[in-house]
Structures are given as structure tokens and as C-alpha cells.
Design a protein around this nucleic acid. Structure first.
Length: 536
RNA sequence: GCCCGCGUAGCUCAGGGGAUAGAGCGACUGCCUCCGGAGCAGUAGGUCGGGGGUUCGAAUCCUCCCGCGGGCACCA
């Protein structure tokens, strides 16, 4: 399979042969198929330095270039583009490559040897996950998968608060419910509090044992959270509770370390970190004047903990409400001798939850929210995940519950999944009719020559670069959009080209094209954590 | 006030220096002797929020303005 890199190298060599200035040529996929499979704009970029018309330069490049292997023809078009049309043989080879590489197709080892810690969700165990958490769960998990696909060694991590005020409030809220009292000020009051209280009472817990109640309560809530995540297909490799950061090796040592490095100082009875010297708006308190560490201190200790575990890269998936946290997080890394670039924040906007066009509240404390479990109950895990992942992290998703429920079959996820089910149907038909498919290497793939077949093959051939792009840009939604493109090309192919026919040779060739399509769809959906069903 | 994100078809959103700006939904018109019609083909629908600027070329980059969302703790 000819790659963009190979074409770029050929063009670069042509530049030298034509005695033109050296330059790394940009290869792009033209939007219009008539403009070929790849195009480069080097001629236009060289027009000024060379002092010649773009098309004239293009002519010199093309003459020096000849016809590279796998390319059918090279042409000059428009203002000076050099367009490459791949040969049919090179395209047919895509099918072979996909089948041969199987699940590995599209993956690469570009980042092999690099390790990344991807922290996401990290909701404190004070209540059930709501819809907003669902987006982060899907995004973090898919991002981890996409990074792994290009070679990263990825650890999915969840950080939670198992100490401090929120735990106290949770315990106090459950205790109050056990005693039939109103929840404390600022306490939690969702239905789950009552359920938890009833559960603990039934199991014989003593409401007066505040510590015991708190401990069990948070563990039960956390268990419920992980169960919800599991329904979405999300599983973390490592869970870190804040408590473990407060040992002597934790916050105190880290704060002292920063002091030694000259980034921590005492003032007004508190200990501060000089984050303003490291890009933050102002300095932050680490140890309060009452001697208690702040949440930021724990964050610093946690960061130290991650660094000590040897990760090359620390990815924090955070909601946009945490964007102010980015500078102090990077500052913490530098204050501990790390590089700010090792800390990367992937920020996402929130899910605007609507019900019948009306905004729905999502306050954990007030207890009036739509839980992630309820959402999954209504639309299913696949549709929920796909809907979260279809959009750029930068846009706020308008998630109208009524609409999504009603959307049902119109949800794009079904469009993609339907193509998977159709392929499975074709496979079943082929088997039932006793088609001898043999091996892909023996198939007459050159028979795949119609417009729709070639379009589908071109889409399949673009998968590796789309995966690389999604990983580099931390943009899993590009995989979803790509899957929709493949599904579209497949549906059109399906409509125009009958697979199982009297033409045995063509049947086999198309069969393998279908299998290759399924492989790519399953791979793309797999990265998103969505199933590629055989029936639906 | 300062910081971040967004503003593209009626709605929800892709595209984020290149060649006629795309998809789904919604509207309208067609397509089931044949592997799954959750599909396909077609029609209608756009000052890419607005003004300046950079460039051979701007929806894309810079800048100012307008609008929407979020954030600016010795809270967690």
C-alpha cells in the first residue's frame, strides 16, 4: 500500500532532480475525487522563492517525478496542484492489506516505548454519576484506546476523594437519613442517600458510628460508580484515593521538596506555592493557616506520585469548568522538576442536558439530575457512548433526552452499526450458498473496479492516517466521523453492487471487500467502545 | 473586568490555510422479482456572527466588536 510518506519522498527527490529548492512536501487528500487520491501544493509554495509561475514549477516537478510505483497518473491542476491518482492495483492491494493485518490494521507503533497516564472521570464518590460524567468517561476511554492504537502504553486512572469535607458530608447525610432527620446543611439529598441509609440500617450499621458509616457509604457509592462505568464498557486500571497522598511520603514531603526547589514559601501563617512564577495568575495555598493541606496540595502530591511511577506523559481529561486549573497543574509539574509539556489537559465542554427543549438541572447536591444509569437504561450503552464521542470535545453537546430517546433509529450510531450488520448478513448468505472464498491473496481483487467499490476501498485505505490524526489531536470524534464515512461508502456500494452473484470470481472479490470493510468498521467502533453487531 | 471554549443549512454538528463549504435530522419527490428499506437516488435550504488585516489563496490565521456557555477560593 502506497503511503503519503512514500509519495512525499518521491516528490522531494523530484525537487532535487529538477534543481528546485528543497522542501518537505505537504500531501493532502483532495476533497474532490476528481483531483486524485493525493495532492501536493509544493509548486504553489515554491512560486515566490523560485520566481516562476506555480504551474510551470509543477511541470518541472512532474517531469522529474515520472510515475511512482502504485501511481497511475500524475497531473497538474487548478492553480498549480500536483495530483496523484493511484493505480487500481494499489487500491486493490488495500483490501489485501486490511485482511492480512486484521485487528492491527490502522494501528501503528509510532509511539512505542512511550507511556501515558490518562486520568478521567475522577468523580468523588458522593453520588451517582450523571450524564456529564458519561461524556468524560467515553472521551477518556476512547482517547486512551486511540493513543494505545498508535503505540502508547496507556494506563487509565481514576482519582477520588476519600478524605476531607465531602466525605464528612456524605457520612453526615447518610447518618441523618438513618436517623430519619433532615440532611445537614450543604449535605447530599438524592434518593440514593435514602437507599443507602436503608441498606446500612438493614445490615445493622450503627448510625452513631459516623466513621464506619462514612467509610461504608463512600465504598458503596464508589462501587456503584464503577458498576455504571462498566455498563458503558469503561474500566480503569488504577484507582487512587486521596488518603494515600497524606502519608509522610505524600503531601508533606512534596511541599518540602518544592520549598527546597525554591517554589514554596510561608506567608500569613500558610504555605504557598509560587505558581505565579510558573505561568499561573497568582500563587496558591498548599497548607492552610489551620495546618490543613488544600486540595491543591493533594494535587501536587498526586502529580509527584504519577511522576514517580515513571509515566512519560500525564493526560488529564477535565471538564471546561476546570480550565483555570491548567496553569497551576503545569506549575506543579515544573516546581517538582518536571517539564510542563509532560502534563497535558484534554478539556471538554459540558453536556447541556435538555428535556423536551427545557434545560434539566444537573446538580449532585440538590439531587435532581439524570443519572448516567438512567441514560443508559433509556438509550443503551452503544448509543450513549457514540453520542458522547461523535462531537468535538470543544463543543457543548445539546443532549435532549426526549430527542435522543425518540431519535432511536435515526441516531448515526445505528447508521454505522447497520452497515456492520449488513456485512454480517452477506457473510451468512455467502456461507449458506456455499461460496468458496479461498484466501484473500488468491482473490481477483482487480475485479473491484466500479465507482462505488473504488470509493469504498479509498475510504478503507485512509483509516491508518485517520487513527494517527485522532491520536495526535486527541480527537476521538474523528474516528466516529470516519466510521460514518465508511458506512456511507458501504451502503452505496451495497445498493449498487450485488455481492453474492453468479459471477464466482467477482463474488469472492466483493466478499473480501466486505470483510475488509467490516474489519475497519469493527476497529473504528472498537476504539470508541461501541460494538459492531452481526444482527440488530 | 480578566482567562478558556463556541457561533457554519430550519435543528444538531463536521470541516480549522487551498481547487464548486459537507453529513445526519426535519421538508418534498422517487426506489423493495434480487445478499437486511435502520438503506439508496434526487430536490429545496448558506452574508461560514459582524468589521478590519495577513496571504497567490481565509469558514480556517491575526485583531476589534457582538452573542452564548464555563472559569477566576486559605471550597472540595
Amino acid at each position: 500500500m502506497i503511503t503519503a510518506d512514500q509519495l512525499a519522498a518521491a516528490v522531494r527527490a523530484a525537487l532535487a532532480d529538477a534543481r528546485l529548492p528543497d522542501r518537505e512536501p505537504e500531501l493532502e487528500r483532495p476533497a474532490n475525487r476528481e483531483h486524485g487520491d493525493w495532492a501536493t501544493n509544493v509548486a504553489m509554495q515554491l512560486a515566490k522563492p523560485v520566481g516562476a509561475a506555480p504551474r510551470e514549477i509543477a511541470q518541472r516537478i512532474v517531469e522529474a517525478l515520472g510515475t511512482p510505483p502504485g501511481v497511475e497518473r500524475v497531473e497538474i491542476a487548478g492553480p498549480g496542484f500536483v495530483n496523484f491518482h493511484l493505480s487500481q492495483g494499489a487500491l486493490a492491494d488495500v483490501v489485501h492489506t486490511v485482511i492480512a493485518q486484521g485487528e492491527q490494521y490502522g494501528h501503528s507503533s509510532a509511539w512505542a516505548g512511550w507511556s501515558a497516564n490518562v486520568e478521567f472521570v475522577s468523580a468523588n464518590p458522593t453520588g451517582p454519576l450523571h450524564v456529564g460524567h458519561g461524556r468524560q468517561a467515553a472521551l477518556g476511554d476512547a482517547l486512551a484506546a486511540v493513543l494505545a492504537a498508535v503505540g502508547w502504553s496507556v494506563t487509565r486512572e481514576y482519582y477520588f476523594n476519600d478524605a476531607g469535607n465531602q466525605m464528612r458530608l456524605l457520612g453526615a447525610s447518610v447518618r441523618a437519613a438513618m436517623r430519619g432527620e433532615a440532611p445537614p446543611a450543604e449535605g447530599y439529598q438524592g434518593a440514593y442517600i435514602g437507599e443507602l441509609a436503608a441498606e446500612l440500617t438493614r445490615e445493622g450499621f450503627d448510625a452513631e458510628d459516623v466513621e464506619g458509616v462514612t467509610e461504608v457509604a463512600y465504598q458503596r457509592v464508589l462501587a456503584r460508580i464503577t458498576a455504571t462505568l462498566a455498563r458503558l464498557g469503561v474500566g480503569h486500571d488504577v484507582f487512587v484515593g486521596e488518603r494515600r497522598l497524606h502519608g509522610p511520603e505524600g503531601v508533606p514531603a512534596v511541599v518540602e521538596g518544592m520549598r527546597t526547589a525554591g517554589y514554596a514559601y510561608d506567608a500569613d501563617g500558610a504555605t504557598w506555592v509560587a505558581t505565579s512564577e510558573l505561568g499561573d495568575e497568582k500563587d496558591r495555598v498548599a497548607i492552610k493557616s489551620d495546618g490543613q493541606p488544600t486540595y491543591y496540595a493533594a494535587d501536587c502530591a498526586y502529580l509527584a506520585d504519577k511522576l514517580a511511577r515513571g509515566f512519560d506523559h500525564l493526560v488529564y481529561v477535565l471538564g471546561s469548568d476546570h480550565h483555570g486549573y491548567i496553569p497551576r497543574l503545569k506549575a506543579a509539574a515544573v516546581a517538582q522538576g518536571g517539564k510542563p509539556r509532560r502534563v497535558e489537559v484534554v478539556m471538554h465542554q459540558f453536556v447541556k442536558l435538555l428535556r423536551g427543549g427545557q434545560p434539566a438541572q444537573m446538580s449532585t447536591r440538590a439531587g435532581q439530575f439524570v443519572t448516567l444509569d438512567e441514560l443508559i437504561d433509556e438509550v443503551g450503552a452503544d448509543a450513549a457512548r457514540y453520542t458522547f464521542l461523535r462531537y468535538s470535545p470543544d463543543v457543548a453537546i445539546d443532549f435532549d433526552l426526549d430527542a435522543v430517546v425518540r431519535q432511536d433509529k435515526d441516531n448515526p450510531v445505528y447508521y454505522v452499526q447497520y452497515s456492520s450488520a449488513r456485512i454480517a448478513g452477506i457473510t451468512r448468505t455467502a456461507t449458506e450458498r456455499g461460496v468458496e472464498v479461498g484466501k484473500v491473496g488468491e482473490a481477483a481483487l482487480e475485479r473491484l473496479a466500479s465507482e462505488h467499490e473504488l470509493k469504498l476501498i479509498r475510504r478503507l485505505g485512509a483509516y491508518p492516517e485517520r487513527v494517527a490524526e485522532a491520536a495526535a489531536e486527541r480527537a476521538p470524534h474523528k474516528i466516529a466521523r470516519y466510521a460514518e464515512d465508511v458506512a456511507e461508502a458501504f451502503h452505496k456500494f451495497y445498493t449498487e453492487c450485488r455481492v453474492v452473484s453468479d459471477d464466482a470470481e467477482l463474488t469472492v472479490a466483493r466478499y473480501w471487500l466486505c470483510r475488509a470493510t467490516w474489519q475497519v468498521l469493527a476497529g473504528a467502533l472498537g476504539l470508541l467502545g461501541v460494538t459492531a453487531p452481526e444482527r440488530m
